[in-house]
Design a protein around this nucleic acid. Structure first.
Lengths: 263, 263
DNA sequence: GGCGTCGGTTGATCTGCATCAAAGAGTACG
DNA sequence: CGTACTCTTTGATGCAGATCAACCGACGCC
């Protein structure tokens, strides 16, 4: 998840009543699934997650389906290349990366995934997964057994999620195919910011969960280039960087960096 | 459509009884849909198209859904960025490219699409399309009204197609993010070859339907680089090139070019 | 609290590919 | 059938970003 050139997630879908919080440590504590808090109908991620846009009534159906949680420790994998496909997963808390590996050992990060995003759809086609998904911090996911997604509403909902994912991929291809390094990083930061906002966090301050190396892999750049660009953006008062802590100072500035004119 | 590092489409799915034909001019002549030849159940693309892997019985269902054809002339578009989403399309004959355009006018080719491939899934998420799809030669598509895809079997089938598309996109990201120019072009040629084989055409000889510029856009390279690489591959007896006519002489050679060792 | 490891920064150098340029080949069209 | 496109090829040059290298700071561990 995470396209780039200002992808989907229209304002209308933003959770309205969600408090703006600093995006520091994740609030863990996976309540047992029986608890009210963890049903889809009351989950505060429902507006960004699979149920996004669904009626209360249909959401009750989804509650029937989502009855397991799974906890993944930092560094462990949710699934791996070649493992059998049975379920989709919705990120409940935490942060993941997905990674594709080539035969000769080269690999690339193909996405970063945060709360509310749906994982595992790569497995539907061939009944086995085509990527590794690895937790970048201790995380929880809701397990959604694919075979239980039976109602037309739920299937349509899944189509929508998959379709958005296809659109996101277009964005990433665009990024990798046509953008220069500084444009890629600006797009990356704006995209992250936007996704945090959609989850009720501040748009201008957040913690990166991934290393420079992982960012570079995702953006098709070397880690050194990523580091240099962070420094340069800081010099230009677009952002401040302290390790993994980022403050965005000038969103319009970053945005204008993406339209190739100034230099 | 068209991933790169040897994506899906296992041998088992290849049309067995299909004659090996040189892939020259497309056989046009869109029969009226009432004709037996054009029903999904008897269509000779059924093993690579939406019905791939379905039972004869389920295919009858699909026949109920697919009742319109649409003819697109070379250079015209099947749909465009922003146009409303109503239907999916299966390429019946011909060749398409899809293209994404950025605000500042830059664009990129995000895929090439040949017979049997399904188009339009980008529109499901937001009810409007996010790319332009343009015919590279006179083409026919089967129109599949989305609202008519109602049975569980058909919806699952669509999931599979979309999922494979997601996997393909991973391949393209890999290509754009980690491969060098020669690797990209080798991957591109092998992928094309493979897709022609799956359609019953020769694996080693085909006509490119797209310009060097379009290949370059798709691969994140300049048209000059594409041209130079074609020449170099020819010097190295990997292929022969005459305009858009390609013969692949050394498939293992091309394949080894993709594992970064020799130079 | 010292030490080792991992991640990050910054500098110097190298190179793959873009860009600029110009000429040639194929094709469409009046 | 010649003219004017568009597409392709090939050469010369320049630069963005990779690579190599060294150092530094943060964090985890004994």
């Amino acid at each position: 998840m995470n396209a780039v050139p200002v992808p989907a997630l229209p304002n209308a879908l933003r959770p309205k009543a969600m408090p703006i919080a600093r995006h520091g440590e994740p609030q863990h504590g996976a309540a047992p699934v029986s608890s009210v808090q963890t049903r889809c109908g009351t989950c505060n991620l429902r507006e960004v997650c699979l149920p996004c846009g669904m009626q209360q009534l249909d959401m009750a159906l989804l509650d029937e389906v989502v009855y397991t949680r799974k906890r993944i420790k930092r560094g462990e994998s949710l699934y791996r290349l070649g493992s059998g496909f049975e379920s989709l997963y919705a990120v409940r808390s935490g942060f993941f990366k997905s990674r594709v590996v080539l035969e000769d050992g080269r690999d690339q990060v193909t996405g970063f995934h945060m709360a509310g995003e749906v994982l595992g759809m790569d497995g539907i086609g061939t009944n086995s997964h085509t990527a590794d998904v690895i937790a970048l911090e201790d995380s929880d996911v809701c397990v959604i057994p694919y075979s239980h997604l039976e109602t037309p509403r739920l299937r349509h909902q899944l189509h929508k999620v998959m379709s958005r994912e296809l659109v996101r991929d277009q964005g990433v291809m665009m990024l990798l195919g046509t953008m220069r390094a500084e444009e890629r990083l600006a797009a990356f930061l704006l995209n992250l910011s936007q996704r945090f906002v959609a989850r009720g966090y501040a748009c201008d301050e957040f913690h990166l969960r991934m290393t420079r190396d992982e960012i570079g892999s995702y953006l098709g750049l070397s880690l050194e280039t990523v580091s240099r660009l962070f420094s340069r953006f800081q010099d230009e008062d677009l952002i401040t960087v302290q390790q993994k802590h980022i403050c965005i100072l000038d969103i319009p500035g970053l945005r204008s960096m993406m339209s190739r004119d100034q230099d």
